[in-house]
Amino acid sequence: MNDKSKQRMPRILIIAAVVVVALSGFIGGKHWHDQPGFCANCHSPMTEYVENYYGGDTTLMITRHAMADTVSLRCLDCHEQTIDQQLTEGAHWLTGNYTFPLEKRELGTRSFCMTAGCHVEEEIIKATTNTQEMSFAFSQHDPRHGKQECYTCHSMHGQSVYSCNQCHHFELPEGWISPQPNGVVASLN
């Protein structure tokens, strides 16, 4: 081996090591970023959501999505964000320019929840008709009062609201709360 080859060998090894370390850091960082607890590392308002995600309370939608039979969903599966959105939210947190609890987003629209690979309306209606938990003979998802947005009743991060009880007096499913006749949510503890 000549002197030039001997000099290039350490450079090639150093460059290869740097590439391997950088690639490993990128892949590891991406995996860490995709975990539900990532945002809560810095953003304290997210802590409760992460605790509910891992908490095991199956009356909460966030836990049910985390414990799904087929594929457990992570926050970023629904909360897809651009770098601009993430930087803006980070700036709001750093400056204290946010409300707590965080404002409820109207993310759970029919078009969002019933996209390919997620929920199917016909299956939901069939699954919620004449179940043992329900005290009525129709599905609360039957659009007899018009098709409602999913977020009207379902709350991903907190207790869901049994909106039918604004007019009716059905037995509440476990973990749900009921609105008053004027639509204001009142806890029935």
Results as ranks from 00 to 15, higher is better:
residue 146 G to A: 08
residue 115 T to Y: 05
residue 128 T to G: 00
residue 74 R to W: 07
residue 175 G to H: 07
residue 170 F to K: 04
residue 48 E to L: 14
residue 68 A to M: 02
residue 174 E to I: 04
residue 166 Q to F: 01
residue 152 T to N: 12
residue 111 S to K: 15
residue 162 Y to H: 14
residue 101 P to V: 06
residue 108 G to H: 07
residue 166 Q to G: 05
residue 178 S to F: 01
residue 176 W to M: 15
residue 96 G to K: 11
residue 166 Q to V: 10
residue 153 C to H: 01
residue 60 L to D: 01
residue 64 R to N: 12
residue 92 H to P: 00
residue 136 F to W: 12
residue 56 G to T: 06
residue 128 T to P: 00
residue 161 V to R: 09
residue 88 T to P: 00
residue 154 H to P: 03
residue 43 H to M: 06
residue 169 H to Y: 04
residue 95 T to H: 06
residue 84 D to Y: 11
residue 131 T to G: 14
residue 63 T to A: 15
residue 75 C to L: 02
residue 50 V to A: 12
residue 69 D to E: 13
residue 93 W to K: 07
residue 43 H to A: 12
residue 44 S to K: 14
residue 115 T to V: 08
residue 81 Q to Y: 06
residue 148 Q to I: 09
residue 57 D to L: 05
residue 127 A to Y: 03
residue 86 Q to C: 04
residue 144 R to G: 02
residue 77 D to E: 05
residue 107 L to K: 11
residue 44 S to D: 10
residue 100 F to W: 10
residue 53 Y to H: 10
residue 51 E to S: 11
residue 170 F to H: 15
residue 112 F to P: 02
residue 47 T to Y: 06
residue 139 S to M: 03
residue 118 C to P: 01
residue 118 C to M: 07
residue 46 M to N: 13
residue 95 T to A: 12
residue 101 P to Q: 10
residue 111 S to T: 14
residue 56 G to Y: 07
residue 41 N to I: 10
residue 110 R to G: 08
residue 78 C to A: 10
residue 63 T to C: 14
residue 61 M to Q: 10
residue 90 G to L: 12
residue 113 C to H: 01
residue 159 Q to V: 11
residue 156 M to E: 02
residue 82 T to G: 09
residue 112 F to G: 02
residue 119 H to F: 03
residue 106 E to H: 15
residue 95 T to Q: 10
residue 123 E to I: 09
residue 85 Q to D: 09
residue 99 T to I: 10
residue 139 S to E: 02
residue 141 H to K: 07
residue 79 H to Y: 08
residue 130 N to E: 06
residue 134 M to K: 11
residue 75 C to F: 03
residue 119 H to V: 01
residue 100 F to H: 13
residue 84 D to R: 12
residue 105 R to C: 01
residue 98 Y to Q: 03
residue 134 M to P: 00
residue 128 T to Y: 01
residue 56 G to A: 06
residue 72 S to Y: 05
residue 171 E to D: 15
residue 102 L to G: 13
residue 45 P to I: 08
residue 125 I to S: 04
residue 155 S to L: 01
residue 140 Q to Y: 12
residue 155 S to Y: 02
residue 86 Q to Y: 08
residue 169 H to R: 13
residue 144 R to Q: 06
residue 116 A to F: 08
residue 43 H to E: 07
residue 167 C to H: 09
residue 154 H to W: 03
residue 165 N to F: 07
residue 85 Q to H: 08
residue 112 F to W: 05
residue 116 A to I: 05
residue 150 C to H: 01
residue 44 S to I: 12
residue 87 L to N: 12
residue 86 Q to E: 13
residue 158 G to Y: 12
residue 162 Y to T: 01
residue 120 V to N: 11
residue 169 H to K: 15
residue 89 E to T: 04
residue 142 D to H: 10
residue 108 G to E: 12
residue 111 S to P: 00
residue 138 F to C: 03
residue 47 T to Q: 15
residue 82 T to W: 09
residue 83 I to G: 00
residue 125 I to R: 13
